[in-house]
Amino acid sequence: MRILIAASGLLLFTSPAFAHDFWLQPESFKAAVDRPLAVTFQVGHGKDRQRWRVDLSRVVALAGYSDGVRKDRKADLRSGGAADLVTSFATPGLHVLAMRSSYAFSELPARRFTEFAEEEGLVRVLEWRRRSGKSDTAGRERYSRRAKALIKVGTLTPANQAIATRPVGLKLEIVPDRNPYALDKTGVLPVHVLYNGRRLANATVKLTSLEFDARPHATAVTDANGRVSFRIPQRGSWLVNVVWSVPVRGDPKVDFDTTFSSLTFGYERKR
């Protein structure tokens, strides 16, 4: 398993592609039973962070998962207000909110696309462009987003926390191997990454504090079993995100299919 690389040692690039990072931001990661919880869709980091200002019809799937139950939550979407989603939870325990967007299309000049691919660790993309003689051409991709948020509702028990470590079937998914809300004193959180249900090796995974989000807190690359571990200060709100891209065959308009995926969770302030 490859364990975290300090972000201070990374060279971060400034490009519009960085704003592709996307996540679910609840007003609180702790909710009461049957009380409304407002959630916004966020994109970008630091000075580029903003609400995801697009037509909510691009949300093609939005669901909540609890102990053995899936509930469609698309009807809870809001347009034009202070929140993108206002929902509530009828049962105590750990709940997972998960969404999937439709495809959008992007074309970046060659240099900026290369910087984006390098920043996200998309080695296969860079190698394909080199072999195909396209390193100096614009990068064309269709991309979509996946996001999960872990919400604590009422009282947690060992049984109703198990959902934290179960995949919910996203195309690209970050799955904790331990519940982030039940870590030991070391604060080590192992996660694995799935792509189409299979463990994904050599994917760059980033951990970012959402209170100090100008750059990642730490970065790691998945091992042969698709795993990385991060040591997490158990305070504040946290984003774990990953990007994966594969060549597209038979479509003259795009070269790559790119998927962005994230996981968010947060801790209450200690008094």
Score class of each variant (00 low, 15 high):
Gly139Val: 02
Leu85Glu: 06
Ser101Gln: 05
Ala220Asn: 05
Arg70Asp: 02
Arg2Thr: 15
Thr204Lys: 03
Asp21Leu: 10
Thr219Met: 15
Thr208Phe: 07
Leu210Glu: 08
Phe116Lys: 10
Arg145Ile: 00
Asp213Trp: 06
Val191Gly: 01
Ser135Lys: 01
Phe29Trp: 04
Ala162Pro: 03
Leu239Gly: 04
Thr259His: 10
Asp84Glu: 08
Val59Leu: 09
Ala220Leu: 06
Trp238Leu: 01
Met1Ile: 10
Leu94Gly: 02
Val86Gly: 04
Ser229Asp: 00
Phe260Gly: 03
Ala117Val: 12
Leu10Gly: 11
Thr219Cys: 15
Leu24Glu: 01
Arg198Thr: 09
Arg271Phe: 11
Ala220Gln: 02
Gln161Lys: 13
Leu126Thr: 11
Thr40Cys: 08
His45Cys: 14
Pro158Tyr: 00
Leu122Glu: 08
Val59Cys: 07
Thr87Ser: 03
Asp255Thr: 09
Phe113Met: 15
Asp48Trp: 07
Ala117Asp: 04
Ser261Pro: 00
Tyr267Ala: 00
Asp76Arg: 06
Phe13Gln: 13
Thr264Lys: 02
Thr157Leu: 03
Leu108Ser: 10
Arg231Gln: 10
Lys152Tyr: 00
Ser135Asp: 15
Ala162Lys: 05
Asn160Val: 14
Leu10Gln: 15
Ala159Met: 05
Arg145Cys: 02
Glu119Met: 07
Lys148Tyr: 05
Val242Phe: 11
Leu239Ala: 07
Leu207Thr: 05
Glu119Leu: 11
Ser144Lys: 14
Phe256Arg: 03
Thr186Leu: 10
Thr258Pro: 05
Leu239Phe: 01
Tyr65Thr: 05
Arg249Thr: 11
Leu56Ala: 11
Phe105Asp: 13
Arg58Leu: 15
Thr91Tyr: 03
Gly46Trp: 11
Asp223Lys: 00
Pro233Gln: 04
Leu194Gln: 05
Ala75Leu: 11
Gly250Ala: 07
Thr259Ile: 12
Glu127Val: 09
Leu10Cys: 13
Leu170Gln: 04
Gly236Lys: 01
Lys134Gln: 12
Gly93Thr: 03
Pro216Gly: 02
Thr14Ser: 13
Phe105Met: 13
Val221Asp: 07
Ala159Gly: 09
Ala98Arg: 01
Ala90Tyr: 05
Ser261Arg: 00
Val248Tyr: 05
Val188Glu: 06
Arg78Ser: 06
Thr91Lys: 10
Phe29Asp: 06
Trp52Gly: 04
Ala117Cys: 14
Ala83Gln: 05
Glu211Val: 11
